[in-house]
Design a binder for these strands. Structure first.
Lengths: 140, 140
DNA sequence: CAGTATCCACTTCGATACTG
DNA sequence: CAGTATCGAAGTGGATACTG
């Protein structure tokens, strides 16, 4: 599975340790293009708790529209992160569940959540400080 | 620092292990609102290699416009992830460097990059398979 | 060099209405 | 229940020109 954070070793000086990747973006943008939208991670986090039906997801994720729930699940399905099972009953019943790849993504997302919890306060404080010190700054 | 991915333990069944967070999004969206844009992670990854000047960043990140480089660095600065040092010389010289918080973020981002590298192929394959199996699907 | 300012194209998303 | 279709508002980023 290799979740070793080798590479971008935090360091102070201005030397060039030549990060994990030669010269490009390490491919991080690929992931963020998938997770960066408004709802994807919320769906993944919810599905990490277990299999869910369409309506269950919608109820578990307040504010998501039918349209966005559909496009989000469809994208995750298409990318092989989510498995979609249709029970051809009446009324129809569709179940969504994370695949193995999807579950590994959920673990990574948990790492993000950890970071968020650990540093949210510091960031909020920094922002308040900055705003106080730069009252009439453009483009906030 | 606590980079323990407790919580969303990957598991197969449909039971409810009650994730890391009671009911909400675990706050992951907070991070992604900051990282999800087109350039932020690229700037962070570049700064993880060492202190950079404005032009150096621009050259290191092909395609970024002056506008976006400015708003991206400004945001990171405002959030306390990046330190901005102005040398009042002529011509002016401005240096950007990650703060401690910024460096911890770089570590987390490296985790994302790891995941991306480990699963990019699987996702691309899944997508091709899906596209082949669903030729005339709407909204791709 | 290191920005700011302005305008515009494109994307993303929400609301609403309808369907098998 | 589980979607699809359509439209419009808002956000986001790129190009260009100008400045201390």
């Amino acid at each position: 599975m290799s979740v070793a954070h080798t590479g971008v070793t935090p360091q102070v000086g201005g030397a060039e340790p030549v990060g994990p990747c030669g010269e490009d973006d390490c491919g991080v943008r690929d992931v963020l293009d998938r997770l960066g939208d408004k709802w994807t991670v919320l769906v993944v986090v919810e599905l990490a708790k277990g299999t869910r039906r369409y309506r269950e997801l919608q109820r578990a994720i307040p504010g998501i529209s039918q349209r966005m729930l559909t496009v989000t699940t469809r994208r995750l399905w298409r990318d092989g992160l989510v498995e979609r099972t249709v029970h051809p009953t009446i009324p129809p019943q569709v179940e969504y569940a994370l695949t193995d790849v999807g579950r590994s993504l959920a673990v990574t997302i948990a790492g993000l959540a950890d970071w968020s919890r650990d540093h949210k306060d510091a960031m909020d404080a920094a922002r308040r400080r900055w705003d106080a010190e730069h009252p009439d700054e453009t483009g906030r």
